[in-house]
Design a protein around this nucleic acid. Sequence first.
DNA 1: AATCAGTCCAACCGCTCTTTT
DNA 2: AAAAAGAGCGGTTGGACTGAT
Length: 320
Amino acid sequence: MGRSPSCDEQSGLKKGPWTTEEDEKLMDYIAIHGHGSWRALPKLAGLNRCGKSCRLRWTNYLRPDIKRGKFSEDEERVIINLHSVVGNKWSKIATHLPGRTDNEIKNYWNTHLRKKLLHMGIDPNTHKPRTDLNHLLNLSQLFRAANVGQMNMSSWDNALSLRLQAGAAQLAKMQLLQHLCMQFVNSSSSAAAPPPPLPNIDMMSTFGYQNLNQFGGQANSLEGFEGNNNGNNNNNIPTFDNNMSSYYEDMLQTKNPFPALVSASPGTSCNTNTNQMENSMSGDPAADCFSTHSPTTIFEAWEKLMDDETSESYWKNILE
DNA sequence: AATCAGTCCAACCGCTCTTTT
DNA sequence: AAAAAGAGCGGTTGGACTGAT
């Protein structure tokens, strides 16, 4: 094991931006010989660079199959979907975007998509609605504008907005549920008492609260509550006792008593068959849930994927 | 025209994982 | 089995660029 010597440990090697002359040397050499050993390449190609620098220059910039230019909406969707499943695994995401490098995707995420999601009220790390109340206040304005339809948004932005409206409603319900749970806690006479029972399903249904996993979470869908414990706590949202949290997590994991909240409209759901997904990725129009439906339907399909318990394994299947 | 702040992205750094010896 | 080399990865940085003042 052990790290290979970094470039600066090898004396006299050039760093920094590549010149066109260096690019040509590298391309010419690889065109004739292939890259072979990156460590040996610079010397053979007549470059005063370390092998690592050559490899990065080739893979991120000079490779002939690299696609340049703006990311399409489809590409954005794929990035966001995959990011929600695998997180910052840029290379894994890149394998599903032909011609895009992990570096490019990473940059695009950090400079565009991350901000876009934040602006839309989605936490880019968890892919769940942001829970800070200040932000919710801002959202109300956004929703109003979105409802009026004056926002000059792309279909994709509009879809996100719709999702947010659902998210805010969901958040409100979660907070209401949290209040109920805290009442159980407060009414408990002993600190050592067993965790309170879950509110019965009828009561949950009364609130329309049917799926705590709504936002792509697994059993950790309560982490928003815990987050309130960690962050500034001036929003008067009761916080979850740890025992209680894990108790409900267990309940969710083992019993999952809540049926799905969103029922997919007929004909709009994506087939969760892996083969079909491969078709989708390869551009088969008959199977492609992502690139051939109308924008609204695309979003519905995406939301279905995100909401459906199977979606995580679905995307994992693709990646594995 | 000059300055400043913000954005973007190519390139680097340092770590981990895999392969070879 | 252990060490070294090779390769890949994600995070960070620095400088070019752009728009606002």
